[in-house]
């Protein structure tokens, strides 16, 4: 089922000034229900501008944006932004900088409160969201979000978005600036969210090794355009082009390419380190020599 449809979307910042900058150029993309979509690209390649279109934070200048049955391009009647923002949850870069309330509970309740839900409903949602991000409700609810560690703050911020119960979750660099343990926790959290709360997830990341571990489809933005839109298993057949764009490719793909160049052919799709290890074991067991 198609959830989000973007057609020929173009966006220009500071139009008709010396600072004019084309951020998106004729972007067409469909996001389906159940997609685990990764978006990669350089800083300034248009990814952030793109995702902000998806919940109406940037209004489309040119082209079409349709999210579920909400058409963002139509002028009359005005698109229902409240409903849109409830259905598309957005976790920004460094989401902990948006925390403001004096307790964790109040901060997470901010979203549901804006939806004008009943007290009981808000409370269940807060409990649910905190459980989903792995924070004990009774222990954390009355603590100040500003006293928590970086990783915990980020989880509170993500819970704040989850409490809106979105159908689609968009995360912009969810692991930026965290230590390896915090990164791993957030990654596991995102993976588990996919199976429990939000069926469709879109993640922006710089770290190709990280994003390939959980996304099934990758979109590459380059110079305000979509350069590639492929399943993870096919994308790295274009390794050369990706490298030419200045983007990285996963370590396992690099190793596999080297092996290939030296006449060692491994079987199967090799994207993650785990793939590589099992492929090498299989190769050895079949009598291959390294």
């Amino acid at each position: 089922m198609q959830n989000i449809e973007i057609k020929n979307l173009t966006h220009v910042y500071s139009k008709k000034t010396p600072y004019e900058k084309v951020a998106l150029k004729d972007v067409t993309l469909t996001i389906n229900e159940g997609d685990f979509l990764g978006i990669i690209g350089h800083t300034g390649s248009g990814k952030s501008t793109f995702i902000q279109h998806l919940n109406g934070l940037i209004k489309p200048q040119q082209g079409e944006v349709k999210v579920f049955d909400i058409n963002l391009t139509q002028k009359k009647p005005k698109p229902d932004f409240r409903k849109l923002r409830q259905e598309v949850g957005m976790v920004f870069q460094y989401p902990e900088y948006q925390l403001f309330a004096d307790t964790v509970e109040k901060d997470i309740a901010f979203g549901p409160k804006n939806l004008k839900l009943s007290k009981e409903e808000i409370n269940t949602r807060v409990r649910h969201a905190m459980q989903a991000v792995g924070l004990d409700y009774d222990y954390y609810k009355d603590r100040s979000p500003f006293d928590l560690s970086g990783g915990q703050k980020r989880r509170v911020a993500i819970a704040g978005v989850l409490a809106m119960m979105p159908k689609v979750l968009i995360l912009d660099e969810p692991t930026a600036g965290l230590d390896p343990i915090g990164k791993k926790q957030i990654l596991n959290l995102i993976k588990s969210l996919k199976n429990t709360i939000t069926p469709t997830i879109v993640v922006i990341s710089h770290d190709i090794n990280e994003i390939t571990q959980y996304c099934t489809r990758l979109v590459v933005f380059n110079n305000a355009k979509v350069a590639f839109d492929l399943p993870v298993s096919e994308l790295f057949n274009h390794s050369e082009e990706l490298l030419a764009m200045g983007l990285d490719i996963p370590l396992a793909v690099k190793v596999n390419n080297h092996l290939k160049a030296n006449g060692i052919k491994l079987e199967g799709d090799i994207i993650t380190p785990q793939d590589l290890i099992s492929a090498i074991v299989k190769y050895k067991n079949n009598g291959g020599k390294l």
Partner: peptide
């Protein structure tokens, strides 16, 4: 920063 925070709170339904 203000833009980002406003966007983030809007995304949480703030009007």
């Amino acid at each position: 920063e203000t833009d980002k925070i406003i966007a983030a709170q809007k995304a949480r339904g703030a009007a």
